[in-house]
Design a protein around this nucleic acid. Structure first.
Lengths: 339, 339
DNA sequence: TCCGTCGGTGTAATCGATTCCACGAGCACA
DNA sequence: TGTGCTCGTGGAATCGATTACACCGACGGA
């Protein structure tokens, strides 16, 4: 592969001049510029990004560590992150933590070793020493979707409180009184928050959220299935299950199907995160939709701001309820997801 | 951030010795090794991967350019690729081409500039000059799922011919005679092959595949919807639609729903690619399942073989039919996906 | 005519690693 | 005792870029 020296030789100039042309520095004669460009063309030269990064201490690369690539929510997030980053002249390296703190650390370390310019993280846990060190060392960082409390890093996320209140209103209106939740890991902020929001919303109707109706999941489908089985085995099973993410809702659906029961007649179901497939499931699933694309883009903007020396602010966007048929026949007009 | 020089100073040895310890070169005294390790610890030193890559001309990184991240098939592929690569000591940088040749080229160029050790591609088109140049220049490469004919690069893919024959047998057994296909882009091998396999399988039953029953899609949901609308508008609409990927099947479902029709009564539906959600759609969708995880792993092994100077062979694995209810009531026992 | 300025250019240092080569000490063997 | 190893080590070149600095010629103004 041709290097800058080869180009310089071919064009009959010094490497400095070649470099100047490539970075369009003003003081280069039109003559020299033309010769360099011609040489670049004939040699098919492409600058070595590795060498450039070593010298400039910039990689123009963002690291994105997400909790689970197989989760359509994070896939969509990753996609919007990459798009916005590309528009701003950055590439993205994605690390998939699979909800495992050790894997998350592996990727963070790897990305840091590669000297990425900034890190976008949706933490799987409360923050490993490695991550905390990285923050302390001044690595530009932004949390997206989930965050680590007590750490001074901008957070870009959706606030689901209002939407959860709307959901509970909807459920209460349909006559449901025994409402259960499949929670995410307590080590994640979204895991905790969604339970809290749910409990609070129930409180407004004088309803309790007993411990037996809080199932501990891990944001993966299998845990949703297990928790739902547990609910169905209770002496007094809940009338509704609210899954804290779309995969656990899928698992809940599995559990209901496996017993030959029907949604919503035997058990109503709602989910946090709206995904495309929810329109086509049997029945279509009522869900809380996050402005995923907007979150990804805002996160990138905040991170790039930090990298380039600007403040870089936290952003909170509202989520909204999308009513379908999985909680019972619908007294209000059906809203459709615009995704 | 501490560099190797700082470590050398701290340990009271030369940078050469530090480097030897880090790459556990044999001829280092136990004494020196201990001092270096201690210095590494106290400084929290991590080798700069950028500098290392520049010197060794190896990045221990694989590039993966896939056609569409939002497609669960490719997501699963990406996941298995990353897993196997990690096991072999490589990282993966994913580029999402979104079925757009220009974006594909953008990512290939970017990856090449970063001097990745090898490239895994599922080409969106028949091969741009850039890609062809890369092959000619000797970049280790492997095609996965789709490939570019006439190029000497190993191909790792699933063969769906037998499964398509099984599908047609199943459909014929249910009494369907007017069968249509939503094809993928003709510029992709999978786009062409699936049509060919379908036509061939129909031939075995003396059935034709008229042009009116070949809808041109682009592997995205929206095209599946449009093509299906077209089919439904025909004077003699087909009885079955076979979508060449899972997203176009989703689009077809949209079209059928929008007209207030039912699957399979008004129109039967089958798809290439089995995804988790197909179990839960209304009705569950009959599909051809690829051994996606195995494909990803085999592709990585082939690529790493090439990189490390071993041959690196093509692999073809069989796909298989998974019968569900979307083509009509099932005369044979239901098979379940094991994914 | 002379001096200062400025545009265009090249030389060389630099980034942080790896690795070739040389060198000195210690040891075995003749 | 001298020769020739091996072992451990450091010095310095190198990878491919960027960029500070020096230099040279042309040109304008006094």
């Amino acid at each position: 592969m041709a290097s800058i020296k080869d180009v310089a030789a071919e064009a009959g100039v010094s490497v400095a001049t070649v470099s100047r042309v490539l970075n369009d520095h003003p003081s280069v004669s039109a003559e020299a510029r033309a010769r360099v460009l011609a040489a670049v063309e004939t040699l098919g030269y492409r600058p070595n990004a590795v060498a450039r990064s070593l010298r400039t201490d910039q990689t123009h690369t963002l690291g994105l560590v997400i909790s689970d690539v197989m989760n359509p929510y994070f896939t969509e997030l990753a996609r919007s992150v990459e798009e916005e980053a590309r528009a701003l002249g950055y590439s993205v390296i994605i690390g998939n933590a699979d909800e495992r703190p050790d894997l998350q650390d592996h990727h963070v370390r790897n990305l840091l070793d590669r000297r990425i310019d900034g890190l976008l993280v949706s933490p799987t846990d409360g923050g490993s020493p490695l991550m905390l060190d990285a923050v302390r060392a001044g690595t530009p960082m932004v949390f997206v979707d989930r965050w680590i409390p007590g750490v001074d890093v901008p957070v870009v996320r959706a606030d689901g409180r209002a939407a959860v209140r709307d959901l509970v209103a909807h459920l209460h209106g349909l006559g449901h009184r025994r409402l259960a939740i499949i929670a995410g890991p307590a080590a994640t902020t979204t895991g905790q928050e969604r339970v809290e929001a749910f409990r609070e919303a129930l409180g407004a109707y004088g309803l309790e959220l007993p411990d037996a109706y809080i199932g501990q999941g891990d944001f993966q489908a299998e845990s949703g299935r297990l928790v739902t089985e547990g609910f169905l085995d209770l002496a007094e099973p809940p009338q509704v299950v609210f899954a804290a993410d779309n995969l656990m809702a899928l698992g809940a659906l599995d559990a209901v199907r496996a017993r030959g029961l029907r949604v919503p007649d035997d058990l109503a179901l709602a989910a946090f995160d709206d995904v495309r497939w929810f329109v086509h499931t049997d029945p279509p699933i009522t869900a809380i939709a996050q402005p995923t694309g907007e979150l990804g883009r805002a996160a990138v903007r905040a991170l790039v701001d930090r990298i380039e020396g600007r403040p870089g602010e936290s952003v909170t966007l509202p989520a909204r309820l999308v009513v379908r048929r999985s909680c019972g026949e619908n007294p209000t007009p059906v809203q459709r997801s615009t995704t």
